[in-house]
C-alpha cells in the first residue's frame, strides 16, 4: 500500500507491523466489520417487522391467520438456531433456482441428477458471469432472511406478550369513546406496548449481535473468517511470515463485541427512560415521584 512497504522482508519492528496491518488482506478484515454492522442494520428492522406481523397474526380474530402466527412463533423458537441457519439458505437457494429453472430452462429436465443439483446456466442465481461481489451480496441476503426468520419469531413472542400487557382498562376507555378495533390498535395498543416490549427486544438485540459470527458458518467472509485466516501461522510463502497469532485476533473481536453490547446497553437505557415517562408502570411511577 505504501511505498515503504514494497519489500516487507527488509522491514523490522514497528515499521514491519505498520505495513503488516495496512496490507490488502487487513483492509478486507477491517471492511468485514462493516459487513457485520450492515447485517445488523438490515436484520434488526426486518426481524422486527417479521415479529410485528407474527404478533398481529397471533392476535388475529381469523382462525387460520392466528394458527399461522402461533405455529410460526412456536416452531421457529423450538428449533436450534444453527439448524435454521444451515437449512434456510440452502433451501431458499435451491427453491429460487428451481423456480427459475422452470421458467428459463426446459421444464422437463429434472434438477436433481443423483446427488447433483443442476439448473441450466440461465437459471443460476446469481449468474455465474456475475462479479464476485454479487455472489457475496447474495450470500448476505440469504443470511439476512435466515436471521430475520429466527429473530422475528422471538420478537413476535415478545411483542405478543407486550400487547397483552397493556392494561385492559386503557383499551376499554378507547372503545367507550367509540373507536373502531383498528383505531384502538393504532392509537392506544401499539404506542403503549413498546414500554413492555423494550426489555425483551433489548435482550433480543444483544443475542442478535452475539449471533452474527454465524455468518461464518454460512460461508460469508465476516470478521471471524478473516481473524482465523490472518491469525493462522504464516510460512515464508507469504510476504509477512509470523507464528500462530489467532489469539490476538480473536481477542480483538472479543473487544469489538464487548464495545458493541456496552454501547447498546447505554442506548437502551435512554430509550427505556424516554418510554417510561407517564406510563402506569413501576418505572413510570418512580419517574413521577422523582420529579415531584
Amino acid at each position: 500500500m505504501f511505498a515503504s512497504c514494497a519489500d516487507p522482508k527488509s522491514l523490522e519492528g514497528l515499521a514491519w507491523l505498520m505495513c503488516y496491518l495496512a496490507s490488502g488482506k487487513h483492509l478486507l478484515f477491517y471492511l468485514s466489520f462493516g459487513t457485520v454492522l450492515l447485517l445488523l442494520a438490515i436484520t434488526a428492522p426486518v426481524a422486527l417487522l417479521f415479529g410485528f406481523g407474527g404478533a398481529m397474526a397471533s392476535r388475529s380474530r381469523i382462525a387460520p391467520i392466528r394458527w399461522f402466527g402461533r405455529i410460526y412463533t412456536s416452531m421457529v423458537r423450538g428449533v436450534p438456531d444453527i439448524i435454521f441457519f444451515l437449512f434456510v439458505p440452502i433451501a431458499l437457494d435451491q427453491a429460487f433456482e428451481w423456480l427459475r429453472s422452470r421458467i428459463y430452462c426446459d421444464p422437463t429436465v429434472p434438477v436433481r441428477h443423483g446427488n447433483e443439483f443442476i439448473v441450466c446456466s440461465a437459471a443460476k442465481l446469481p449468474l455465474s458471469t456475475s462479479p464476485e461481489w454479487v455472489h457475496q451480496a447474495y450470500g448476505i441476503f440469504l443470511a439476512v432472511i435466515a436471521f430475520a426468520v429466527v429473530f422475528g419469531a422471538f420478537a413476535a413472542n415478545v411483542l405478543y406478550g407486550a400487547m397483552n400487557a397493556v392494561p385492559r382498562a386503557q383499551l376499554e376507555t378507547a372503545e367507550a369513546y367509540g373507536m373502531s378495533p383498528g383505531q384502538v390498535n393504532r392509537r392506544i395498543l401499539i404506542p403503549q406496548m413498546w414500554t413492555y416490549a423494550l426489555p425483551g427486544l433489548a435482550n433480543l438485540w444483544m443475542i442478535l449481535i452475539k449471533a452474527t459470527p454465524l455468518l461464518f458458518v454460512l460461508g460469508v467472509e465476516d470478521i471471524v473468517y478473516w481473524a482465523r485466516e490472518l491469525g493462522a501461522a504464516k510460512t515464508r510463502v507469504y510476504a509477512y511470515p509470523h507464528p500462530d497469532w489467532r489469539l490476538y485476533y480473536f481477542l480483538g473481536i472479543l473487544v469489538f463485541y464487548l464495545l458493541m453490547t456496552w454501547g447498546s446497553e447505554r442506548i437502551f437505557d435512554r430509550i427505556r427512560a424516554r418510554l417510561s415517562r407517564g406510563q402506569a408502570t413501576a418505572a413510570g411511577e418512580a419517574m413521577r415521584k422523582a420529579a415531584t
Binding site: P8, S23, G24, K25, L27, L28, E229, A232, T235, V237, Y238, A239, Y240
Partner: peptide, 14 residues
Amino acid sequence: GAYPPYNLVNDQGE
C-alpha cells in the same frame, strides 16, 4: 485458500 503453497490467500487478500 488455506493450504500453502497449493492455494492461499496472499497479503493483498487475493
